[in-house]
């Protein structure tokens, strides 16, 4: 392989990892350092992280597809009549995970909760988007952080509601495949929402420090992609769970 060399005299620092800093570009807000170095603009870093995010979302999409596959597969098989126990009666009982008889169908979970959670995640994504637009317009950091703060409230509310839903389910994990898969959906949603809330907290704090001023709005866009994905995947699970008892 032939190469030529170009001279330049600067050997600069490491790239940032999973979560970049924002001061490769525009005014440096905190500290004088510039980890991105002169060659890697913040935008270049953002490009890399965008690709990373799409790949991770791709993986998460497969996770989602397999969850939904599980739902429909077990529902179709209805092994031992215990998808949701529709035909369990006193005359011909089914058995739960502890060997006790189940004599009536497993109650359907109230879709209200799931719908509320999906709405909260959609609102969270919307407000992240508002925050991005504010940053893009060059609004004051108070407004960027303000929208981010509202988004964070919705994220935390979604987490709280998902935890709450575990308390009010009409079934437990031992009540057959419908109950199992439903709770698995909830657990997976909860995990995603917690991750979202972590990122949302970062967005809020950083916006408050003015990290998205000065032309680095695209860093918020990255978070918006993630927030929208979380909203989409949460909604998909809710729709499946609500419509296909």
């Amino acid at each position: 392989m032939s190469i030529t060399t170009t001279d330049h005299d600067d050997a600069h620092g490491q790239d940032d990892g999973a979560h970049g800093d924002d001061h490769g570009h525009g005014p440096v807000v905190e500290g004088a350092e510039n980890p991105g170095g002169p060659h890697e603009t913040g935008y270049k870093r953002d490009q890399k992280e965008r690709l990373m995010l799409w790949l991770l979302i791709g993986g998460d999409l497969l996770f989602l597809v397999l969850e939904v596959f599980t739902w429909f597969y077990l529902r179709t098989l209805n092994t031992s009549g215990l998808w949701n126990g529709a035909q369990c009666t006193t005359a011909s009982p089914c058995t739960d995970g502890l060997g006790n008889p189940i004599t009536s169908p497993i109650a359907k979970a109230d879709p209200k909760h799931a719908i509320i959670i999906a709405c909260l995640s959609i609102l969270a994504a919307a407000f992240v988007w508002m925050s991005e637009l504010a940053a893009k317009k060059g609004s004051a950091k108070r407004s960027v952080a303000g929208w981010a703060g509202i988004a964070l409230v919705f994220m935390l509310a979604a987490v709280a509601w998902q935890i709450y839903q575990f308390q009010v389910l009409p079934f437990t994990t031992i009540d057959g495949a419908y109950a199992s898969t439903y709770e698995f959906f909830m657990g997976s949603t909860l995990a995603h929402l917690i991750l979202m809330a972590f990122v949302g907290t970062g967005l809020w704090i950083r916006a408050g420090k003015g990290r998205y001023q000065g032309g680095t709005w695209y860093r918020v866009r990255l978070i918006r992609f993630f927030a929208v994905w979380i909203a989409v995947s949460t909604t998909v699970l809710v729709v499946v769970a609500a419509l296909f008892y």
Partner: peptide
Amino acid sequence: TDRATGTSFFVPEMGGSQWL
């Protein structure tokens, strides 16, 4: 979750399936 919380993804007597 099957082992530690009692779900039944892979337990046919309770609505699961080994084929899954």
